[in-house]
Lab assay of single mutants.
Amino acid sequence: MSIQHFRVALIPFFAAFCLPVFAHPETLVKVKDAEDQLGARVGYIELDLNSGKILESFRPEERFPMMSTFKVLLCGAVLSRVDAGQEQLGRRIHYSQNDLVEYSPVTEKHLTDGMTVRELCSAAITMSDNTAANLLLTTIGGPKELTAFLHNMGDHVTRLDRWEPELNEAIPNDERDTTMPAAMATTLRKLLTGELLTLASRQQLIDWMEADKVAGPLLRSALPAGWFIADKSGAGERGSRGIIAALGPDGKPSRIVVIYTTGSQATMDERNRQIAEIGASLIKHW
């Protein structure tokens, strides 16, 4: 067993022997301040990774656009098919120029040779490549099948209805392509620590998230040296922004954090800054 596999296998073990965790309302004060600064709703939840206990939450059962955070769930569904012998990570998928959609920095470079399922998941999570996500959605049967996968996990809230990039439209009061912070946090925890996926697939999923290259201005910008984070960000229309993450000190994750916002007129930089400040408060009061 590799060191990384050992780390993920012992996530519940280490967490069980940690000192009790206590909620700190100071972080919620910052979440509410972010709402004021952005002029928009902000949803927040913080779960203990081992027990699933909610440590703090704000608007945990209000719907927010998922945006690209759905790509972690998508690759979880792909990995479940791999575990069941219905898919192979090494299978190569070929596609054409007509398949390319807006923001496809990886797939646009491989029109000639195609990409493997493993490479597509890596591109979808680490670079948020939209064509990679659409190609992977095709392998599982489309958005409705991802929703069905989530329902089978016990998540009857999260739903995907459309493809990239239309799913980022974020129309107010439109339930399409949305989740709730509580539902997303619980589902992410199941994917990373539950028995739904094999140990190898859980490790692969967290490795992809740990290698995320496009979430630097968010929670990662607030992390002290030595902290662990595996995350996936999302951005959408109407001032929408979000991030889902597993993080913790001492090089291992111990909490799940989900943050979503929508309806702001603020710039992307300002949305990023507010999420980073929430992260800084979380870490300060850990």
Score class of each variant (00 low, 15 high):
P253C: 15
L136S: 10
G85Y: 01
Q86E: 08
N152H: 13
V82H: 07
V106G: 06
K32M: 10
R63P: 06
L197R: 08
I243Y: 11
L55D: 01
A245D: 11
V72H: 01
D269S: 05
A133C: 08
F228W: 12
I275M: 06
N152K: 11
M66C: 02
A132Q: 15
G76P: 05
S80V: 10
N50D: 05
Q86Y: 08
C75P: 09
T27E: 02
A77W: 09
L199G: 03
N98Y: 00
Q97H: 08
M153I: 09
L73Y: 07
T262N: 06
P25L: 08
L79R: 07
Y260N: 02
N173E: 08
G114H: 06
E62V: 11
S96E: 05
D231I: 08
G242P: 07
V72E: 00
P143F: 06
E61S: 12
G194K: 14
I259M: 14
S122I: 14
R238I: 00
T187W: 06
C75I: 15
P25E: 12
T139M: 07
G142R: 08
L205P: 08
I244T: 12
S96M: 02
I256N: 11
T27L: 08
P217G: 10
F70A: 06
R41P: 08
R159L: 08
F149M: 15
S128R: 03
R118L: 14
P172R: 05
G52N: 03
L79M: 05
T262M: 09
T267Q: 12
I283N: 10
G263K: 00
W208S: 10
K144F: 14
R81F: 13
S104D: 15
F149R: 14
P249Y: 15
L247A: 03
P165C: 07
A280G: 01
C121P: 09
T186F: 08
E237V: 11
A280C: 03
P105D: 07
T69W: 01
I278N: 09
A77C: 07
D177W: 06
G114N: 02
L120M: 07
L219V: 13
E164I: 14
V72T: 11
P224V: 06
W163P: 09
E145T: 02
R91F: 03
M67G: 10
L136V: 04
G248A: 04
R159S: 04
A132E: 15
D33S: 09
E108C: 10
I206T: 12
I140T: 14
L28N: 05
L135I: 15
L196D: 04
G76F: 02
D33V: 02
E270N: 07
Q37I: 10
D250V: 07
G279W: 12
D269H: 01
H156I: 05
M66S: 09
Y103Q: 01
P60R: 07
L55A: 06
S221A: 04
E46S: 06
L160G: 09
V157G: 14
F228V: 05
V117H: 02
V101E: 08
A84Q: 13
R176V: 02
R238M: 12
L100V: 09
R91H: 04
S233D: 06
P172A: 08
L49I: 15
P217W: 09
S96R: 05
T138L: 06
H110T: 15
C75S: 11
W163G: 08
S254G: 07
K30E: 10
V31I: 13
L73S: 12
A200G: 08
V258C: 04
A215V: 14
L55P: 11
A84T: 11
V101M: 00
T178R: 08
T107A: 07
P25M: 03
T261M: 07
Y260K: 04
T179S: 10
L120N: 01
S96T: 09
E210A: 11
V157R: 07
L28V: 05
L135F: 10
K190R: 15
A200D: 00
M209I: 05
Q88D: 12
L146V: 00
R92P: 09
T147S: 12
T116G: 10
T262W: 11
D36Y: 01
P253I: 05
D212H: 13
N272A: 10
T138S: 08
A133V: 01
G114C: 08
R91N: 09
I259A: 09
C75K: 11
H24I: 08
V257T: 03
D231P: 08
T262R: 11
S51E: 03
E35A: 08
I45N: 06
A185W: 07
P105W: 13
T261Q: 10
E175F: 00
V258I: 12
Y103M: 05
G43F: 12
G236R: 06
R238L: 13
T198D: 04
K232C: 15
A185Y: 01
V72L: 10
G154A: 02
V257Q: 04
P143M: 13
R255Q: 03
I206W: 14
R81W: 01
I278M: 15
S281E: 06
K32V: 06
W286G: 10
R92L: 09
T112A: 11
R220Y: 07
D174H: 07
V257R: 02
Q204R: 10
G52F: 01
A246T: 09
A280H: 02
E102F: 10
D83G: 01
Y103S: 00
A182D: 06
D174A: 11
E175Y: 00
F228A: 10
C75M: 04
R271L: 10
S68M: 00
R271M: 14
A40P: 02
L89P: 02
R159D: 13
D113Y: 06
G90T: 10
D207E: 05
E56Q: 01
G251M: 06
K284S: 06
L167Y: 02
T138R: 07
E87N: 14
F70I: 05
L135M: 05
N272S: 05
L135P: 07
K71H: 07
A185T: 05
S51L: 12
I283Y: 02
M67A: 11
E145R: 08
A34F: 10
I259P: 07
L188Y: 00
A225H: 08
